[in-house]
Structures are given as structure tokens and as C-alpha cells.
Amino acid sequence: MSTNSLRSTTGMGRTGDKVFSGAAMAAGILILVVLFSVAIFLLVQALPTFSAKPADLTGGEGFFSYIFPIVIGTLIAAAIALIIATPIGIGVALFISHYAPRRLAQGLGYVVDLLAAIPSVVYGAWGASFLASNLKEPYAWLAENLGWIPIFAGPASGTAKTMLTAGIVLAVMVLPIITSLTREIFLQAPKLHEEAALALGATRWEMIKMAVLPFARPGIISAVMLGLGRALGETMAVALVLSSGPLIASLIQSGNQTVAAEIALNFPEAFGLRLNELIAAGLVLFLITLAVNMVARWIISRHKEFSGAN
């Protein structure tokens, strides 16, 4: 009797087990398939661009001369964002992990995370209306006094809808990423090292410089890389803030364009070859961000055993 019932349930249970583990594995494989099909569908749809006559493409000089300025524009925007956001992000993370009173620290962490919860289109609207209108005068001042530096060459844009404004908005958007990742690592710095440094008479800054920052360096690098990935792919902030144009060196004149914004602005009206061209631009963006993210993840996984940035 007992052997019978055991045998009967075994059959049923085994099927259930197989179905369930099969479904779980299939879901996992599906994710890999989706990621590869993202690349493949983009590639298939982008192919006509590469075989098309250069004269048929936007600009009339082939795909490379079309994509080159906007890739450079993307890099400029991301660079501005990182130059602003990295020191501030590390400062905020240090403040939360090592300076703020214990009781406040968690609440402050939530406040910074709030920055990440605001949708990008809202940042775009804020940058285009509030930030741009407040930056007109500083830009005019920059053009007047620092105009000899190429990136501040005048005349300053009258609307302040320029690359620098877009870069500042992007900086605000990558700040929470950098902050939350570096904060986690700072919190994991070995307590004994910190206490030893303090016991030897180090000031708080010396303790951080000697015990926390060296430990956190790989984590900081990968956090910045992930921030870079976000800044490269961010669309709406740039699409709404930047009044685009050809590639120029000055950051306070209207001009320049990023890949993501170029796609978002032109895709809704695009058809035919233009559609393929924009998808090819998307493919380029995808490959750039993929490379950046893979490097960042690789750095993290290399240091996984003693950092929690995953």
C-alpha cells in the first residue's frame, strides 16, 4: 500500500518537477535570446543603411559622416555629466556613510534615491524651462569673460538650451546611480582599518583617505562606468533641453546632438531609408553602452569577493 502510493505520487511529482525546472530554464534562456535578438533585429534593420548610396543618406556623405558628429556629441554630453556628477556623487556618498549622524543617514539615502525616482521627461521639462532660463546670465558672463577658451566661445545662446545645460541635467540624473553604488562600498570598508587609523591619531579625512578610498577604488570606477552607460543612453533630457545643430566646440551655443535624442526626435516621422538609418544609429549606441556596461560589470565581478557592488 505504502509503496503503491509512493510510486503513484512519484510519477506525478516527477513530471511536475520536470515541467517546473524546464520552465525556469526556458525563461532564463529566453532572456539571453531577447538580448541577442535585440542586437540581431537592430542589425537586420540597420543593414540597408550600410549598403545604401552615400548620397541617399542624411547629410549626403555616407553613414560615417552622419553618425560621427552625433557620437561625439553623445560623448561630450556624457563627459560633462560625469565631470560634474562624480565628485559630487562621491561627496554625497561619503556624507551619508561617514559624516552624517547614524540616525539621519538612512533617511538621507532615501532622499537621494528620490532623485532616481523622478521620470526623465520631468527632468527634461525642468531643464528646458527652469534651468535654462536661470543659466542665460551665467552663460553670457562666461562668453564675455572666458570666451577665449573654445568651449566657452560666444556668443552665448539666447535660450541657454545648450550642451552644457543638457550635461548638467544628465549630471543630476546619473548622480543617484553613482551615489548609491559608492555609498554601498564605503559602508563596507573594513571597520577595523578605520578604527585603527583613528586610533593612530588620524583625522577623519586622513582616515578616509587611507582606509576607505583605496578599498573603494574599483567600486568607484565601476559606479562611474555605470553612470556613464546611463548618461550615454539618456534620451529625453537631451531631446527636450538641447536645441540641436551641427557639431561645435562651444558648449554655450546651441548646437551638437546626441544619438539617443537624434533617434527620439526623428523616429516618429521617419520612413524608408531614414528609418533604417536611425536604427543603425541605435545599433551604434547599443554597442557603445554594451561595451561600457560590460567593462563596468567585469570590474565589479573581479572585486566581488570583497565589495558589495553588484
Partner: peptide, 16 residues
């Protein structure tokens, strides 16, 4: 690849 996927630009997901 899930980690890498978190970094896909949203516009690329739309294009896909």
C-alpha cells in the same frame, strides 16, 4: 547578461 541588460538605453529597447 541580465546585468548588462540593465544598462540598455531605453531608446534602444524601443527600437528593438
Amino acid at each position: 547578461f541580465v546585468d548588462v541588460m540593465t544598462g540598455i538605453p531605453s531608446i534602444v529597447a524601443g527600437l528593438f
